[in-house]
């Protein structure tokens, strides 16, 4: 008999998810973004998952306070490598460009290393900067997001992708939705009806580029 699958909240409405979900979170203000980030990390640490955050708005002090309020020492988990913080530019735009292959390799490595270190699962929350559209273009971004879903079948790393509704256009947001199986609406994670599976989406992309 197989052991029960690891299930864990990702901070939205206490819904339990198995590792490897890919969620799109479009936020309307900084507070919403920050709350989601803190809850995501808190639930991850509580669930024993290795939790990473790649954001330009990653307030280390706020994270420490949130964990401390819940009886967790940020210093300890940080020292143990259970919480990893990084800026968007240093993670996504390393060497000044946005390379989906490099990012996917980084996620894959993070996931495998986490499991090797004994974590039951790994999770990452990333707050994408709109300049990605200038650096790589919308197509490359959507390709990356679609391939994250593919990667998760092999390495079920939980991923929440945050997009600032004020910084991305409405059309971009809808396109971004298409490459996320789940999305957050009114604080709840729901199945995304705009979602196009990666095989289909990437094929459409290839057709369109021809």
């Amino acid at each position: 008999m197989n052991p029960p699958a690891h299930g864990c909240s990702i901070g939205f409405a206490n819904d339990q998810f198995e590792p490897g979900v890919h969620v799109c979170h479009i936020y309307g203000d900084d507070q919403e973004q920050q709350n989601a980030l803190l809850k995501f990390l808190l639930t991850g640490v509580r669930g024993g998952e290795r939790s990473s955050c790649f954001s330009e708005h990653c307030d280390e002090q706020a994270i420490a306070q949130e964990l401390s309020r819940n009886g967790i020492s940020y210093a300890e988990v940080s020292r143990a490598g259970a919480v990893i913080l990084g800026g968007v530019r240093e993670v996504y735009f390393e060497s000044g460009d946005f390379d989906p292959d490099r990012m996917l390799g980084r996620l894959r490595g993070l996931y495998r290393e986490s499991l090797e270190q004994g974590y039951p699962a790994a999770r990452v929350i990333g707050d994408m900067l709109p300049e990605v559209l200038d650096i790589a273009g919308r197509t490359r971004l959507l390709e990356y997001e679609s391939r994250v879903t593919l990667l998760q079948r092999e390495c079920p790393i939980t991923a929440v992708c945050q997009y600032d509704g004020r910084a991305f256009s409405g059309a971009d947001i809808l396109e971004i939705l298409k490459v996320h199986p789940l999305t957050v609406v009114q604080g709840a994670v729901i199945r995304n009806p705009f979602y196009i599976p990666p095989e289909t989406y990437l094929a459409l992309q290839r057709d369109a580029s021809r």
Partner: peptide, 28 residues
């Protein structure tokens, strides 16, 4: 699925800023 899309857009626009809503809706 189409009905779900309409419902999602309906719910999503509530959280979107003004300048984003019509781009999002028209795209959808």
């Amino acid at each position: 699925r189409v009905l779900g899309q309409l419902l999602l857009m309906q719910s999503a626009v509530i959280g979107l800023p003004d300048e984003t809503i019509f781009g999002f809706v028209c795209q959808g």
